[in-house]
Design a protein around this nucleic acid. Structure first.
Lengths: 208, 208
DNA sequence: AAGAAACCTGATTCAGTTGTCATATTGTGA
DNA sequence: TCACAATATGACAACTGAATCAGGTTTCTT
């Protein structure tokens, strides 16, 4: 049920009309998955939302799973782009973390469906979920290493740190952007920034 | 499809035999969900693993979802107990964080199925998933507040911090206990401890 | 050992789903 | 305008898996 390179997209659209239809289906799937969840969402829910017939979906996708994969890839590109743009003016790594966290929260808030889809992908196709975070992590590690070299960040095990940071953002996004916005993003960013700058302990910077 | 108090367990077992069977089913469900995932796991897979007939499952549970809920509650109790026991000898909050993180990683490593089930519950019954983390978070916040009062921890927004800390543990558990144990728990704990004690910045403890 | 209560069985039902395919429509280049 | 390739349709065959229930088995009590 999950051999490696099994289902290449039945065929890429060859005209602008086809491309438009494919995109409509993808958007409808995003909304439907976001509302109903992947499993509760049926093919017919997606095609109805897209305003096409059932069969049309199979012109562009081999099935539900391939749509999910496509959406996860999409989320990857979009988040990366959004975060990359957001940290452009940062004077150092710590400020980049602040800008990045805020941008992430904003992205989640603006794209709740896509975020839910990503999380749910963990249980539908774990490989693509891991791929997302491993790719994200690689980029993040490079930035931390650079910042350490520049003396902006304490040396440390960056792989572990990166997973900690991704997890932290993940939960903050879930709680404060997706579930309830009972705290401003400012508040969240300030609190986390303080953690990064000073730690949790009242008396740090001595006994390790 | 999800009215509030819909399905009370059809009936609690009234003899030791019944209790045993119920427990067998629960354990089989944990294993089956852990291996196949909630959706791919069928009732027949669970009952086969438990060595009982299909119908037997319905003597003790109203269906698949109730089993999941039961398992999440289970995970809640077990994790709490394990963590509470692990931090008993801690001299301060920071050491408690170290002990707690290690205990959490050990728990995940020893109970991968239960951990997966908890994560997947997010998409099956979001309420029980939130409940788990909100309950966990409440206890955690109390401890942080105490530690702040004692002067062990910098004052700050503890709700936000707690969600950050839970997210951090969550991802570290996923990556370093569930997926690959390519780093020792010591290494993970040390790295995170350094973050808590000193932050990420090379020069903290001044400009906020 | 009889009777009752609890426990267990598993073939069957049934609501729902996916993916197919023969056919229809659209639009474009010659 | 005609041909034909791409695109779209939607009824339906084939399948899935949850839940049922009429009846059998075990255990306990007296």
């Amino acid at each position: 049920m999950s051999s490696a390179a099994k289902d290449i997209s039945p065929s890429a659209p060859k005209t602008a009309r086809g491309a438009r239809t494919r995109a409509r289906i993808l958007k409808a799937a995003e909304d439907t998955f976001g509302t109903l969840g992947y499993h509760r969402a049926g093919i017919s829910d997606i095609t109805r939302a897209a305003g096409v017939a059932q069969g049309t979906l199979y012109c562009y996708f081999s099935g539900k799973e391939e749509i999910l994969r496509e959406l996860v890839r999409d989320m990857g590109h979009k988040v990366r782009a959004h975060l990359a743009a957001s940290v452009i003016g940062a004077r150092d790594r710590l400020q980049a973390e602040e800008l990045g966290l805020r941008a992430f929260l904003e992205y989640v808030s603006a794209n709740p469906s896509l975020y839910r889809v990503l999380q749910e992908a963990q249980f539908v196709d774990e490989a693509i979920f891991r791929e997302y975070y491993e790719a994200f992590g690689r980029g993040y590690m490079r930035m931390l290493a650079d910042a350490t070299r520049k003396g902006e960040v304490r040396p440390g095990n960056d792989e572990i740190r990166v997973w900690a940071l991704m997890g932290l953002s993940n939960f903050l996004g879930l709680r404060f952007a997706l579930w309830d916005q009972d705290h401003s993003f400012d508040e969240v960013v300030t609190t986390i920034s303080d953690l990064f700058r000073n730690g949790l302990a009242l008396d740090g910077k001595e006994k390790a």
